[in-house]
């Protein structure tokens, strides 16, 4: 007799919990008509941006500059990563997606199947910097070396010389030091990881019938500071981060990169803007075209972004502004649809 009653008592407590939770949540939503999506807002407008943590500070800076011109538009910016950003964007949760690479086919299909149309607007360029410790005699690496040191076939290599044979097989004549190899880089969720794989690994891996990914056994971290600190900690380390981060790190050595023509190019603002440096990547924003049409806030914000906002913000954050032709192209793409 007592046993079932005890059970009902517990259930009653649980039901009460749920009711209290629901009642409170309900009361909350009554107080504001504003929902999660931005398209319900009127003239004032709310713009929700998510995506690449690399582009995040640019979009934030543009929003700050925009605020002084148009204080009625509320701009929220988040930076979980390019991939996560596109998931939200294609679900219609955000109005603009920041990206440190072009949208992937699978992501484009996801957007298409949800009826989300978008524009691709290039806003600046970021270089990938390959770094080592300050005491490393090495000056320049080519793409074959990087594949041999970090690609899928390098799993288990703990000394630079372990990769020597593979590099030679791929046609490189770089001589690696006989020293411990500690690798630091961004994790798979990062746009920087995707760009590195695309630049360094994909081509060779495909030709050799391997998966287009890095070796799994390196120190992966989402925080660029941690990667830079890791590289600083040892003379024979190897790591890669965005140029903006590496350029501000005093105690790492930026390696010059040979893109395949035998010419070693150091990463600088000039070589990245000109495209001469092989490991550079474009930065994008992807506005949802339906939201541009329905939400005046989104249109005004992107207008400002394409106008004076872009170059100032890109330079202030530490990326490389677009060349004049590329900027004209981006503006033309925006004007054609608005």
């Amino acid at each position: 007799m007592t046993r079932p009653r005890g059970g009902f008592g517990i259930v009653a407590v649980l039901v009460a919990t749920a009711l209290v939770a629901a009642a409170c949540g309900g009361g909350g939503s009554d107080q504001s008509a504003e929902g999660g999506s931005g398209d319900s807002s009127g003239a004032a407008g709310e713009v929700n941006i998510s995506g690449s943590s690399t582009v995040e500070p640019v979009s934030v800076r543009v929003a700050e500059l925009f605020e002084s011109v148009n204080p009625d538009v509320i701009v929220n910016v988040d930076g979980p990563g390019t991939g996560d950003g596109f998931v939200l964007f294609c679900d219609g949760e955000t109005d603009i997606s920041d990206a440190s690479r072009a949208i992937k086919d699978s992501e484009a299909q996801n957007c298409a199947s949800n009826g989300v149309d978008y524009l691709e607007l290039k806003i600046g360029i970021d270089g990938l910097a390959v770094m080592t410790g300050p005491g490393n005699p090495l000056e320049c690496l080519n793409l074959a070396d990087l594949y041999a040191l970090t690609g899928p076939e390098s799993t288990g290599f703990t000394n630079w010389t372990d990769a020597q044979a593979l590099a030679a097989e791929l046609g490189s004549d770089t001589v690696f030091p006989d020293a411990r190899l500690d690798i630091f880089g961004p994790g798979e969720e990062s746009g920087t990881f995707d760009t590195f794989v695309e630049f360094v690994i994909d081509g060779t891996a495909e030709a050799r019938g391997r998966d287009g990914t890095t070796r799994p056994d390196y120190n992966a971290n989402a925080d660029d500071n941690v990667i830079v600190q890791g590289v600083e900690s040892s003379d024979t380390s190897l790591g890669w981060v965005g140029f903006a981060f590496a350029a501000n790190a005093p105690d790492v050595k930026l390696l010059r990169i040979d893109g395949g023509d035998g010419n070693c190019v150091a990463p600088t603002a000039e070589t990245i803007a000109s495209g001469e440096y092989p490991l550079s990547r474009p930065l994008f924003i992807y506005p949802n075209t339906a939201r541009v049409a329905s939400n005046p806030g989104v249109k005004a914000y992107v207008d400002f972004y394409m106008g004076e906002g872009m170059d100032e913000a890109v330079a202030e954050v530490g990326y490389v502004p677009l060349s004049d032709e590329a900027r004209a192209e981006t503006r033309a793409a925006w004007q054609a649809t608005s």
Partner: peptide, 17 residues
């Protein structure tokens, strides 16, 4: 994480949603 457009007061209940 990056930017929150609004900066509501402490007791502004609109911010709950």
């Amino acid at each position: 994480t990056g930017r929150l457009g609004r900066n509501p007061g402490l007791l502004d209940t609109d911010q709950i949603t």
